[in-house]
Design a protein around this nucleic acid. Structure first.
Length: 280
DNA sequence: TTGATTTGACCGAA
DNA sequence: TTCGGTCAAATCAA
């Protein structure tokens, strides 16, 4: 995709508005609830932010992504690479992470989905742990993104909101918005530049996508029943269910321009998604 | 056929 | 020597 078509531009605009709305939602949640009580909601808001951000990044870059193309390294290649390490370029220092090395950040979550696309590359039984430890790397490693994460299912089942301990290593360089990534990393959310129109379209967009009444947003959290999570397969496609619901009040479409703009088409449900998808 | 996942083996740090 | 992190062949799924 060399340049953005008008439909893509509309999607980009909507996703930007959604991003701003999610940021505002996070601010509201943070203001409304003490640190601990709002953790899951804020994590969810952060997840929405990440999802929006990835779509924005993809559209902004022209969608030239695709799954990593790095295939298995041949043993001979490996040996050759080892033989020339002294003189070759330091492309990817494959030095393994020191055992127990400190993560960039560590989160406890009820879900392993975080808006990024991960590819599982290993699983290990860990001493003293009931559940195996799962190793993921960014699916865009082929583009030089060295972010990895380690997922450990929590021992205690009493807190579903912290069923997984996820340690992140390295930063995403695959197009994730740096500011958003930073905001998500330390739990802070950027104040939205636009609030009202974004909030309106955000609610409508999610409402449309989820086919739910406008009074609620349904956001799927992938079910994690103890098996290895597999959110990496077949690209990034968040879907919707009613497993977790956030009641959203105060959204209205008053701020939306009622002219026949593509944005309005999107808001009232007549937007031509097929043409958008085809153009991407 | 292609790409993702599984899983045993390998490797390096402690 | 042990154990955790990574590799890569085998396997599965679309």
């Amino acid at each position: 995709m060399a340049m953005l078509g008008s439909s893509s531009a509309v999607v980009l605009e909507l996703m930007t508005m959604g991003y701003q709305s999610a940021a505002y939602l996070g601010e509201l949640l943070r203001a409304a609830s003490p640190a601990q009580a709002g953790d899951e909601q804020q994590e969810l808001a952060a997840e929405i932010l990440r999802c929006c951000d990835r779509v924005i990044a993809k559209l902004s870059r022209g969608g030239a992504t695709g799954a990593t193309t790095g295939k298995k390294r041949k043993a001979a290649e490996s040996a050759a690479a080892a033989a020339m390490t002294s003189s070759s370029l330091p492309v990817t220092p494959t030095k393994r992470r020191a055992r127990g090395a400190e993560a960039v950040r560590e989160v406890r979550s009820g879900t392993t989905a975080d808006g990024f696309i991960w590819r599982k590359y290993g699983q290990k039984e860990i001493n003293g742990c009931k559940h195996p430890r799962l190793y993921y790397r960014c699916a865009f490693r082929g583009q030089g993104c060295l972010a990895t994460r380690r997922v450990q299912q929590s021992q205690s089942q009493d807190d579903p909101a912290a069923a997984f301990v996820i340690a992140y290593y390295g930063e995403h360089t695959c197009g994730g918005n740096a500011a958003a990534a930073a905001a998500c990393r330390d739990g802070e959310l950027m104040p939205p530049a636009v609030i009202n129109s974004g909030a309106s379209s955000f609610a409508a967009a999610w409402n449309m996508a989820s086919r739910e009444p406008a009074s609620s947003l349904a956001v799927e959290r992938r079910s994690c029943d103890g098996d290895a999570p597999s959110e990496t397969s077949q690209g990034w496609s968040p879907s919707f269910s009613s497993e977790v619901e956030l009641d959203v009040v105060g959204f209205d479409l008053a701020g939306a321009d009622s002219s026949a703009s593509p944005v309005w088409e999107f808001l009232n449900g007549s937007f031509d998604w097929e043409s958008v998808i085809n153009s991407l």
